[in-house]
């Protein structure tokens, strides 16, 4: 079978290479989480694909709880997923940058909880290194 060459305009992202496991930073450069999976809208499992329909698009980046199931299989319940809407993404490079402050996202609750309840109890954990 003949292999054809593509000429694609726009930024090409291969999900495994360019999205999964990338660190997510908020608009101030503060780490929020890492990309553990991606929600793709517009695919109906088991139903024929309508060639006239618009192509599926990334709707959310899923962070926080997906890494274990990517390794060991299965999936966490939908209620445990922490989505970050694609509309909040401002750039995809070596890291994924958001256009909003991390404090406004639920995705960072684990980091906030750890920071407030564990790191803060460590001597020196409440201020920057001197």
């Amino acid at each position: 079978m003949t292999i054809r060459r593509d000429q694609t305009a726009g930024l090409v992202l291969d999900a495994q290479l360019h999205l999964l496991d990338r660190q997510v930073l908020d608009r101030d450069g503060v780490p929020v989480s890492t990309v553990d999976d991606v929600e793709v809208g517009g695919i109906r499992p088991g139903e024929p694909v309508d060639p006239a329909a618009p192509p599926p698009v990334i709707t959310d980046l899923l962070v926080g709880t997906e890494i274990a199931t990517r390794i060991f299989g299965g999936r966490p319940p939908a209620s445990r997923r922490m989505p970050i809407s694609w509309r909040l993404v401002s750039d995809v490079g070596t890291v994924v940058r958001l256009g909003v402050a991390g404090d406004s996202l639920d995705a960072g609750w684990v980091e906030r909880w750890v920071s407030e309840h564990i790191i803060a109890r460590i001597p020196g954990g409440r201020h920057d290194p001197e």
Partner: peptide, 13 residues
């Protein structure tokens, strides 16, 4: 899975 960012302009991307 290959994605291309060339769709309808969103809020940021």
């Amino acid at each position: 899975v290959r994605f291309v960012i060339d769709g309808n302009p969103g809020q940021l991307l």
